[in-house]
Design a binder for these strands. Structure first.
Length: 753
DNA sequence: ATTCGCAAAGTTTTT
DNA sequence: CTTTGCGAAT
């Protein structure tokens, strides 16, 4: 046994690290060093001669996987342990065993909006009267079914359940459309793999043997499908180790079932259980507040959280007059901490229940000139312009992807309208063709105007020209898409100011593609790139190293820690969310969510609420969250700021005890920048300096006009490579057509237009 | 076929 | 308040 791996660990931690064969359940409280234990255990397995390739570590988020990868690399550099999210793992397995799920290996992963669009087509196709049900409702019913491994043909409505009856009709059609498009939704990835494992003993045995040591992180957040997958691969080699904390289960709405962790000991009677209850993160006061709150949950395994850390300062609960005051008050405090030199921006986080609340906090931080990064709900890859452009690649990779086809056929507008598309759809449906194949036969479709047929044929030609480059680096391929479609030109001369942002986002996409190319040298990585774009989440872009205040939802905060934490809007209807109030189980989940938020704090924690809050465009009085009354008042310091409320209805807060500090020196408002799904302010923004640029290969951009001494003016069609290898394909429209240059050695000059 | 404008609706959390 | 959807006008 290597001494280093156990150094500085508690007995319980050592016990978990040294465990090798057989099932293990690690019940890990917040801040108990779980990631450390898991990574050390993997290193220990490797030291005991377990082959890296037979270890599979499944996490819930990419962020957690990255963190684990980094820490493992320090212990065991370069070991090819398979480490990633459930979804990514399933994506890989599904490529390998696509046929068993009735798919081709180049299948497309639909995100939520794609699958909703498909569902709408399904609803239309079965011609139901679904006026009383939103597609979202049907979507979540289908999602629930898939998470519980109920296939379309198994789905039966419970008698008298009207929604269920509709789902029973739409679900099969929806699934048929997905299959016809050679596509899967997020839930399918899990369901297909779980069913393959269930129905194919050979595959199951093979994967069981391939991955002899399986670790599942955040086990409390797994759903039935994920459970089935982990379980099926741990029969011949039952070395399944799961880590989790029932008190941090916050994904019940996504099908996660606490049963998986609460009943793990029943599934594996010989399980080795390790409890990590010592907290290394928070002060005693913070931990006691958290513990008092969570002890109000009934459905849980009681835990004895304790810490040897300092007592710490009291947890603060502040009531502000308005949401505006709240945000300004928090920003003022943050500014004070930073100016006094006690804290750096990166030490501080603001959490809230829903993304919609971020705006006010953002504005206040901006007004104070405090740098921040917002982990936001609307993801970069969900943006219209990004999806538009990527859809060309999706279609190139999977020509049967009807959704992608519908998206690109008339974007940018090329005169192919509703009636033409309807005819294409009809033609495709009657012959069982994909829409793209139907489009190839446009000339033969009866009733299609000649003009329309020509437009469609031109589109097909354009698309085929793009496809020529599918094996090229991604940046170059994207360049060809942009050039052929003139997507940027469409935005350039637009009046809409948002379109300038869109152009910037497209540049950002090109940058992402370039970075991908750097990581994946060689040809033909389109499919990997597309998979990556489908499976990244907003929280993955959170950058722990940049010195900024973090703004995020409590869900996104899971697994992170900050010296100073503010939790805003602790009000009834928000936390707990109004849609959870009716149901006890959901209320408990809301309580756990707040518990997660509280336990992120290491030294200082402030909860706050506003008496009045503008929300949904309306201003109204708020009610304090019922959870606040469950907190131990002797650990806390309560304070009321502002006096817009005359009466003392809430009755539970002391009078104001001190004033808000005033800060004179306010920097001018700064505008956040949008980068890969995160709005952030750079140091340059703060200093008011423009970013400096090297007058080099970086001077050339997609779509730029350049001059060549011999060929004259041309336009950059595509770019690829880096540094000295950076190449540009230029179209000299007036002379020789397309040429490719190595920029460093070329006489090309940018032309300012 | 596209664009514009207005009305209505709907607001959680994310792979 | 924002986004989405629909209908009418060009």
């Amino acid at each position: 046994m290597d001494y280093d791996l156990l150094k500085g660990l508690t007995d319980a931690q050592c016990e978990a690290v040294e465990h090798i064969d057989g099932p293990m359940l690690i019940l890990a409280g917040p801040g108990s060093g779980k990631t450390r234990v898991v990574t050390h255990r993997i290193a220990n397995l490797l030291q005991h001669g377990v082959r890296a390739r037979s270890i599979l570590a499944l996490t819930f988020t990419n962020k957690a996987a990255d963190e684990m990868r980094q820490r493992l690399d320090r212990l065991a550099p370069g070991e090819p342990v398979w480490l990633g999210t459930f979804h990514r793992f399933c994506a890989r397995m599904l490529r390998e065993y696509a046929a068993l799920a009735g798919l081709q290996q180049n299948y497309t992963i639909y995100d939520t909006s794609d699958s909703l669009a498909t569902l709408k087509r399904a609803i239309e196709a079965v011609e139901l009267d679904a006026t009383h049900y939103t597609p979202q409702q049907l979507a979540s019913a289908i999602s629930w079914a898939k998470n519980n491994l109920i296939t379309p043909d198994q789905y039966e409505a419970r008698p008298g359940n009207v929604t269920g009856a509709i789902v029973a009709k739409v679900y099969p059609k929806y699934q048929e459309l997905l299959k016809h498009s050679n596509a899967v939704d997020f839930d399918d990835m899990l369901m297909h793999v779980a069913l393959i494992l269930r129905d194919s003993p050979e595959v199951r045995a093979e994967l069981d043997a391939r991955y002899r040591y399986i670790l599942v992180d955040e086990y409390q957040d797994t759903n039935l499908a994920q459970y089935a997958i982990a379980r099926a691969m741990s029969i011949d080699y039952p070395n399944l180790a799961v880590t989790g904390d029932p008190d941090q289960s916050i994904y019940g709405w996504r099908g996660a079932t606490l049963n998986n962790i609460l009943e793990f000991e029943r599934d594996y009677p010989e399980v080795h259980v390790v409890r990590l209850e010592q907290n290394w993160r928070s002060t005693k006061k913070i931990l006691r507040v958290a513990d008092a709150l969570i002890s109000h949950n009934r459905r849980r395994k009681a835990k004895d959280l304790f810490t040897d850390n300092d007592e710490g300062v009291p947890v603060r609960l502040i009531t502000y007059a308005s949401h505006h005051d709240e945000a300004e008050g928090i920003a003022a405090q943050i500014l004070g901490m930073i100016q006094s030199g006690k804290r750096q921006p990166k030490d501080i986080a603001i959490f809230y229940r829903i993304n919609a609340l971020s705006r006010t906090y953002e504005a206040a931080l901006r007004d104070e000139g405090i740098p921040y990064q917002l982990v936001r709900g609307v993801e970069f890859y969900q943006r219209k312009e990004i999806k538009d452009v990527l859809s060309y690649l999706l279609l190139a990779n999977n020509p049967r992807d009807d959704n992608a086809f519908l998206r690109v056929i008339n974007t940018p507008a090329r005169g192919i309208g509703r009636s033409t598309i309807d005819k294409l759809v009809e033609h495709a449906t009657s012959r069982g063709l994909s829409l793209l194949d139907a489009a190839r036969e446009a000339g033969m479709i009866a009733g299609l105007a000649k003009k329309s047929a020509v437009s469609v044929a031109k589109f097909v030609g354009l698309f085929d020209r793009i496809c020529v480059h599918v094996l090229r680096p991604l940046e170059e391929l994207l360049g060809h898409v942009l050039s052929e479609t003139e997507y940027q030109d469409m935005l350039k001369d637009s009046e809409d100011p948002d379109d300038q942002d869109r152009l910037a986002n497209i540049e950002e996409l090109l940058t992402a593609a370039r970075e991908f190319d750097e990581r994946h040298p060689g040809d033909g990585h389109l499919e990997e790139f597309l998979e990556q774009t489908s499976l990244v989440a907003d929280t993955d872009d959170w950058d722990s190293s940049s010195d900024r205040v973090t703004l995020m939802t409590m869900h996104a905060a899971k697994g992170l820690e900050f010296p100073v934490v503010f939790i805003g809007a602790v009000e009834k209807g928000l936390i707990p969310h109004e849609r959870s109030e009716k149901d006890d189980a959901q209320m408990e989940e809301e309580r756990r969510l707040l518990f997660v938020g509280i336990t992120r704090a290491k030294e200082r924690l402030q909860l706050s609420l506003a008496k009045r809050r503008d929300f949904r465009g309306r201003s109204g009085y708020t009610i304090p969250s019922p959870f606040l009354f469950e907190l131990p008042r002797d650990e806390m310091e309560m304070e009321e700021r502002g006096d817009l409320w005359q009466s003392d209805d809430s009755g539970d807060f002391d009078e104001p005890s001190f004033d808000i500090d005033e800060f004179e020196d306010r920097t001018p408002k700064q505008i956040g920048k949008s980068i890969a799904g995160i709005r952030l302010m750079t140091a340059a923004d703060l200093a008011g300096e423009p970013a400096t640029e090297d007058a080099n290969a970086d001077d050339f951009h997609q779509g730029m006009i350049v001059r060549h001494p011999e060929y004259g003016l041309g336009k950059i069609v595509a770019l690829s490579g880096t540094f000295r290898n950076r190449k540009a394909t230029v179209d000299f429209f007036a002379s020789v057509g397309q040429k490719t240059f190595v920029l460093a050695a070329s006489p090309l000059k940018p032309v300012r237009s």
